[in-house]
Write a protein that binds this DNA or RNA. Structure first.
Length: 202
DNA sequence: GAGGAGATCGTCT
DNA sequence: GACGATCTCCTCT
């Protein structure tokens, strides 16, 4: 299974955000394969978007957003959480897509352990929904940290973090306002798979 | 089930 | 020195 090519990310963030729904996030962690299907994303429009990290211009923290498309931008927030983004559009635009929720597909036992939710033996449907239903949660479940993952190439078959298309049919997509931000939150830039039980709360 | 407060620290002013 | 693209736990109903 080949990762999505960098040309996929060479588009405006709203097109990338909706196009990513239904694709697989694949993570190699200590030789084990962890995977989840994207069910919720958010677009951030770079230097023109007051809610985007890139709004104030390039800094040491957000430099990945201003680099080539298809890279992982990981940042630390609220003193305890990480969030995972994909850079998109052209280098210098500062645009990105935030990954908000995944449907767990492989390695659920390890994900549960990383999340501190047990993980030995059977996993209940309730636990399954708690694994990746939020930006901070999915990073914890996939062992994504700024130290380990910031700047990784999501388009390389050899990358320990990549996005692939497994040929699943395109999901039914719905658009809603963005979540968890104070500036320009009313912009309809949150893309979700309609009816998925794995969406983040609100 | 809903609502609110606390946790905790890197980053920018 | 303030705040944030969040989560969990506790309380109240």
């Amino acid at each position: 299974m080949q990762p999505l090519p960098s040309s996929f990310y060479l588009r405006p963030p709203d097109a990338v955000a909706s196009g990513l729904l239904g694709k697989l996030v694949v993570r190699e962690h200590h030789g084990e394969l962890l995977a989840g299907r994207l069910v919720e994303t958010e677009a951030y429009f770079g230097t023109n978007d007051p809610a985007a990290h890139a709004f104030a211009g390039e800094t040491a923290r957000n430099s990945v957003l201003f680099g080539p498309p298809g890279r992982a931008y990981v940042y630390f927030i609220y003193g305890m959480h990480f969030c995972l983004n994909a850079s998109c559009e052209r280098a210098g635009d500062g645009a990105g897509v935030l990954f908000r929720a995944l449907e767990p597909v492989a390695g659920m036992g390890t994900m549960a352990r990383l999340r501190g939710l047990g993980g030995a033996g059977e996993i209940s449907q309730k636990t399954l929904r708690l694994l990746c239903s939020g930006p901070g949660r999915l990073c914890q479940a996939l062992a994504v940290t700024r130290d380990g993952c910031n700047g990784l190439d999501l388009t390389s078959p050899r990358s320990p973090l990549r996005i692939v298309d497994d040929g699943a049919p395109a999901p039914e997509i719905e658009v809603t306002p963005r979540i968890g931000i104070s500036k320009a939150a009313e912009l309809p830039a949150r893309y979700i798979v309609r009816g998925s039980p794995f969406l983040s709360g609100r």
